[in-house]
């Protein structure tokens, strides 16, 4: 109970600090700390899947993306970016009240669903063994509610295309921090790169029975990509080659092909024929999401082997 209160209060204070902070940099740091405390909160509530996703995507990759955006803003404008403080208007108050009411209503619904007759959860728990999956989260994401997941992957792709369109062609010249020249970087990269790949693939495979899955694995791959970009092993390229394009769409494509293929053999749309299809879809999703995040970090349409 003490830890519950401590985590809840800490999250509110950190969120407040991230928004109100005197400088933009301070706000970013508070946002990353917020993500870490949120990770602890999910772990404390017994949701290791969400904790891993929050640590890897929320605090890790998003933190890196915001940090590089801040660095570029300073570099391009050569001034401290102005902190857009939240406007203290009456509208903000109305939105705050509405948002609080919405969160409260969802919380109330969730609590009452726990005590009431949770039909969907019961049916899922009964049918989960038939799918060969042991992790109910993966079951919901890939088998039971996979239209939602397909749309999520499509949204990632659409968001990337929108970001590319907004950045334009000259974005390949976006500055990146110079790679630090220190003899420690090579041992770091040669140790972490294979290790990260092994852990990512393990997470993907373990996700069928234990906490893990495509989103966590893709965030790990994205973290590796960020490391490679920052250490100069991989650099931005002015155009995307076919491999990059294929990697970006493979998640949505494989998901759609499996889902539509079911119609051909007479099964319902988006039915999952077996555990191999779960692995196939998740592997494709991992590549697409990971690559999208790295390309956003590099701020370029493509990647090249070595940074000049």
């Amino acid at each position: 109970m003490v830890i519950d209160v401590f985590l809840a209060l800490g999250l509110v204070v950190l969120a407040w600090q991230a928004l109100i902070g005197g400088s933009l940099f301070r706000g970013i740091v508070m946002f990353i700390v917020f993500g870490m405390v949120l990770t602890l909160a999910w772990a404390w509530l017994g949701s290791p899947d969400l904790a891993m996703a929050e640590a890897a995507i929320g605090a890790g990759v998003t933190g890196a993306l915001i940090m590089i955006a801040y660095w570029r803003l300073r570099r391009i404008n050569a001034v401290e970016p102005r902190d857009p403080s939240p406007a203290r208007s009456r509208l903000a108050l109305v939105i705050a009240v509405l948002a609080t009411g919405l969160v409260g209503a969802i919380g109330l619904a969730a609590v009452s669903a726990l005590t009431g007759d949770a039909t969907a959860a019961r049916v899922m728990n009964e049918t989960l063994p038939d799918t060969g999956l042991g992790n109910p989260i993966t079951g919901v994401l890939i088998v039971f509610r996979n239209l939602d997941t397909l749309l999520e992957v499509a949204v990632v792709l659409a968001a990337y295309i929108a970001a590319r369109a907004a950045l334009g062609r000259e974005s390949a010249d976006l500055p990146l921090p110079p790679a630090p020249d220190t003899p420690l970087l090579t041992p770091l990269v040669v140790t972490l790169a294979p290790l990260t790949m092994v852990v990512a693939i393990y997470l993907l495979k373990a996700g069928s029975q234990y906490p893990g899955g495509a989103f966590q694995a893709s965030a790990l791959l994205a973290a590796l990509g960020v490391l490679l970009v920052l250490t100069g092993r991989v650099g931005p390229a002015a155009a995307a080659n076919w491999l990059t394009r294929a990697g970006l769409v493979i998640g949505t494509l494989v998901f759609c092909l499996v889902g539509l293929g079911m119609l051909v053999i007479g099964a319902p749309l988006l039915a999952i024929p077996g555990i191999w299809a779960v692995y196939l879809i998740e592997a494709a999703m991992m590549i697409s999401i990971g690559l999208t995040l790295v390309l956003l970090f590099a701020g370029a349409p493509g990647l090249s082997g070595k940074r000049s």
Binding site: P180, T182, L184, L185, L188, T191
Partner: peptide
């Protein structure tokens, strides 16, 4: 390992 490298980088900087 990670702490060593990051501490080294921060110190150099």
């Amino acid at each position: 390992f990670a702490a060593t490298v990051s501490a080294h980088l921060i110190a150099r900087r």
